[in-house]
Write a protein that binds this DNA or RNA. Structure first.
Lengths: 157, 157
DNA sequence: CTAACTGCAAAAATTTTGCATGCAC
DNA sequence: GTGCATGCAAAATTTTTGCAGTTAG
């Protein structure tokens, strides 16, 4: 539920920092902006629709507009986990998404999982990988096991 | 804009194989199905919309429905390259997509680029990676250079 | 002939845009 | 008070569903 923020320096301290960063840009510190950021932090990762449902009083339009602002300010990031649903999450929550095609499960893996890939991409092509926007698709262990079990029987289909 | 097909082995041979696989399933070999498959092969990778534009006489609805059938039969695959746009491409065209956030360029990288990642995911978590559905996001060399150039000047803002 | 397929219309789902009012500063 | 933000309505996108006519097998 809560992520009793220990905040090494600037991570969850954001609620206050939000006001500061907004002012720097000449933007306003509205309650809706705080609510949207809080929702993203509480949900971990969620679609604009889920976030909207999580903040009753706020219009969907405002959610979209504020997610954009929050991402621009560096408070949230988004990644593409499935078909059309973009998933937003706290910027300080750094990890790689692993999604299972069969069961749809979304697992978070440590970012160093792609260090080798990142290094190779950079060395060979000068490409700087954005690890936070990174999604890996495939079949999780459970679904692989289930598929095997289905293929083994001689019954066919 | 012709695609004088040379067909090395079994790649583009699919036009005939398509008829066979369709019959196996009790499905019909309609001209639209052949046209959609041909379009995917000619475009390399394209969104349903682009494919639709590429096949004038065929309705968008039919494109969607046939892409589903073709994917089910294993003739095409799709991956998520950007926001909401799914990109379809020939199944035999195996590579990893590298997308630049800044300029939007989509580069194809050899599949072995993710071999290390695939192995590690499998060993550590029993997860079987689907390389064809794989997209890497970040900044290409050109855009990184452009960004550096912009930061260097002392003019600040 | 039979039924799968297609095209067209309409619905559903998702994200964006325009504008008058409201509220942060 | 000034003008950025919000909310509501409407538009623009994108994908799905229903149906009657068409056509492959």
């Amino acid at each position: 539920m809560d992520g009793h923020g220990h905040a090494h320096g600037h991570a969850s301290a954001g609620q206050d920092e939000l006001a500061a960063r907004l002012r720097e840009r000449g933007l306003r510190n509205t309650p809706q902006r705080g609510q949207v950021l809080a929702a993203v932090r509480e949900l971990g990762h969620a679609t604009p629709e889920q976030i909207s449902e999580s903040v009753p009083g706020v219009d969907v339009t405002t959610v979209y507009r504020n997610l954009e602002v929050l991402e621009d300010l560096g408070f949230v990031k988004h990644a593409h986990l499935g078909h059309g649903a973009a998933s937003y999450r706290p910027a300080e929550d750094d990890h790689v998404h692993v999604v299972c095609h069969q069961c749809g499960a979304v697992v978070d893996a440590p970012p160093d999982l792609v260090d080798a890939l990142a290094t190779r991409l950079h060395t060979e092509r000068g490409f700087v990988l954005d690890r936070s926007h990174f999604t890996v698709f495939g079949s999780c262990a459970d679904c692989v096991a289930a598929a095997d079990g289905e293929q083994t029987p001689p019954v066919g289909r």
